[in-house]
Structures are given as structure tokens and as C-alpha cells.
Amino acid sequence: MEIELRINGSAQKLDVAPQVSLLDALREYLGLTGTKKGCDQGACGACTVLADGRRINACLALAVQYQGREITTIEGVDHPLQEAFVRADGFQCGYCTPGQICSAIGMLAEHKEGAPSAATEHLADTGGELDETEIRERMSGNLCRCGAYNGIVSAIKEVAK
């Protein structure tokens, strides 16, 4: 079916079957391969993109459902986190990296809005500090098999300051 997606600020028309995920639409129909497929089951976070600024797993999103939403992929990201990741060596192979960065952008926004995490000691507290424990818990939806977790946390901490 004909659908229209708004991706990185521009409207894209494409013809996809309803079962095509947002992830496959990006990678296979629009050539936006920066968003990665790691598990296709919502268990790794490599496919994380932003929908209206909120981080989601594109593998579990049907493309047709996301018409009218503003989708941001790594190709549309221009954020201090990117340079921070390079400096802190927050990756090795780079495969999970776009997902980590999109996730971190969404995470910083959530924290700014006062959203709690499972690591938040006092749930009623909306202005807690984004310390390492908070970052690790909030980023746990993004696996990194190279084990670059320390670098990722450093990069995020630097930008969150």
C-alpha cells in the first residue's frame, strides 16, 4: 500500500505491504541503512529511532502505523553526542552505535522531562541527577556486544553535564 512517512524532516512516499516494519522500510525501501537490525525482536535496541522525539524500536513498529509521525534516524541526527562517542571511544564495531546514539538522545529528553527510571531512588523526585547508575539503567535497552559500555556512559555523561 502507498504510505507517506516523515523522515528526518522530509516526506517520503513508499509502497509497502502492511507487514513491513518501520525498520525494513528504512533499510530496504529508503536506503537509510544507518538504523540497524540486530535481533528483529525488540531484544537488542540496534534499531532504535526517534518517533516524535521518543525512542522506539523500529523492528516492532509497522511502517504503516507511523504515518504522520516525525521519524528521526541516525542520518538525521546532528548532536554533540556523536563527537562525544568518538572521543570517549563509545563503540568498537559500530553496529549498535546508531541505536545507542538515538537512544541516548531520547533518554536525555526523558530525563529532562523528569521521567523516572528503575534506578531512581525516590520515584516522586523529578529532578534527580543523571548519574552513572541512572545512565546505565536507562540505556539498558541497547546491547553492545563489543562491550563499549564504559565509553558510552562517559560520552553521555559528558554531554549531559
Binding site: 525488540g42 535496541g45 532504535t48 521518543r54 525512542r55 522506539i56 524500536n57 516492532l60 513498529a61 537512544s103 531520547g106 533518554m107 526523558e110 523516572p116 527510571s117 528503575a118 531512581t120 536507562r138 539498558s140 535497552g141 541497547n142
Partner: peptide, 12 residues
């Protein structure tokens, strides 16, 4: 809720 899944999944 916060102890379930991941932030991305909870957003969806």
C-alpha cells in the same frame, strides 16, 4: 512498569 522491558519498549 519501570522494571519491565526497556525504555524504547515502554515508550511503545
Amino acid at each position: 512498569i519501570l522494571l519491565g522491558a526497556s525504555a524504547q519498549l515502554r515508550n511503545m
